[in-house]
Structure formats: C-alpha cells, structure tokens
Computed example of a mutant assay.
Amino acid sequence: MSPYQTWQATPSITLEDDLLNTRDRLKQIGLSLFARHGYEATTLAQIASAAGIKKPSIYNHFDSKAALFLELSRDADDDMIALIDASLAEMADAPFEQRLRHLLQQCATFAYREHQGVFYKRFLLFPPHDLVAEAEAITEQGESRIDRRLLAFVQAGHRAGALRETLADDHFIAAFYCIIDGLLSETFMYERPELERRFEGVWSVFWTGVKAG
C-alpha cells in the first residue's frame, strides 16, 4: 500500500472531534490541578495554560470554573457508583462474606486513584465554600444511589442467612458508610501499607459484629 493510500485510510479529525478532545483534556488537567491545589487556588488561566489554549477558549466548553468543578464532582460520584456495581457483579457468585469484604476494599481504595482519589476526598470532605449547596446536592444524589444498592445487598445477605437476624438494614448501611468515610479520611494520614493493615482490623471487628451466629 502506498503512503498516499495509507493517508487516505486514516479517519480525518473533525472540528467536533477536536472540541471533544479539548474538553476531555481540560477535564483531565482540571482534575489534576484541583486535586493538587484545591478549588480556590486553581485558576482557569492555569488550566488553559496547561492545556495549551487561551483562557477565553475554555468558555467554549465550560461556563465557569465552578461548572468544570461540578462536572468533575459528578464524574467522581458516577465512578464510585460504577466501582460498586463492578464489585457486586465481579463477586456475584461468591459467598456473602467475600462479597462484602471485596466491596469494602474497593470503596476504600478508590481514594488511591491518581488525581481522582484526592479530588474525591476534597470534594466529599472539603467542598468549596461557594459551592457547598451544589456539592451537597451531588453528594445526596450519590448517597441515594448507593443506598439502593446497599439495601439490596444487605437484604440478599439476610436471605442467604449470612447476617444476624437482628441486624437492621439501616444499621448495616450506616456502619458501612462510617467505615468507608473513616478509611477515606485516614488516607490523609497513612501510607497505603499502613491503611491496608488497619483495614484488616476494621474488617475483623465489622464482620464479627454483623455475621450470623
């Protein structure tokens, strides 16, 4: 095949493709800078410079820095939901104890995803002062989606006889959140090996408290 034929076979990049690529690049850069410096200390000028475009060009993709931040927040929330769904699907045929342990581990290690993990922790624990209401709305919507999954999960555990009969569904869900929130917070203080060691202790106590018999 001649060089000309090879060139002809390569799909051309349309303006729409280029805009989508720029939008994705802005999100990746914004995620990195927000995670590293926080919302207040990150400017659109910095994001534009890192993307190799002029600041006004950002407005072709996002109305404001707040709009970019909130979209990244929704993305992070969606990714946490996707992680939960993936864990439940992957371990669907495993005993309930293994399914629960895997789910807790996956949620806890979400914080270690490069850039996104730190961003998620910042968004969840320290939302920007000017965006508290919007951030809380995203968090509440995310929790509602997680609640539905956890409710179905704990009810399946009861049907399988894996959980003690007196364990209330809402108590299980509350304890699950406390463990995840606590482990996410501890990632600010401990390196991963220490967090994994602490997880083993947390898991031992939690499973002893919820298991049947």
Score class of each variant (00 low, 15 high):
I29V: 10
G30W: 10
L31Q: 09
S32N: 11
L33V: 03
A35M: 06
A35W: 08
A35P: 01
R36Q: 12
G38D: 01
Y39I: 02
E40T: 09
A41R: 12
A41V: 00
T42Y: 05
T42E: 00
T43E: 03
T43Q: 08
T43V: 00
L44Q: 11
A45L: 04
I47V: 07
S49I: 03
S49H: 12
A50W: 07
A51W: 07
G52C: 09
K54E: 13
K54L: 13
K55I: 08
K55N: 13
K55C: 07
P56I: 11
S57G: 13
I58V: 15
N60Q: 14
N60H: 14
N60I: 05
H61R: 09
F62P: 00
F62A: 09
F62K: 07
D63V: 10
S64G: 08
K65F: 05
A66C: 03
A67L: 08
L68P: 09
F69L: 01
E71C: 04
E71T: 00
E71I: 00
L72G: 11
S73W: 03
S73P: 08
S73L: 11
R74P: 01
R74L: 14
R74S: 12
R74D: 08
R74A: 14
D75R: 15
D75T: 15
D75C: 09
D75L: 15
D77M: 14
D78T: 12
D79Y: 13
M80D: 12
M80I: 13
M80R: 15
I81P: 03
I81K: 13
A82M: 12
A82C: 07
A82L: 13
L83R: 13
I84P: 10
I84S: 14
D85N: 11
D85G: 06
D85S: 10
D85Q: 10
A86I: 02
A86N: 08
L88K: 02
A89N: 05
A89T: 08
E90C: 03
E90F: 06
M91K: 10
A92W: 03
A92L: 03
D93V: 01
A94T: 04
A94S: 06
P95S: 05
P95Q: 07
F96H: 01
F96T: 01
Q98F: 02
Q98I: 09
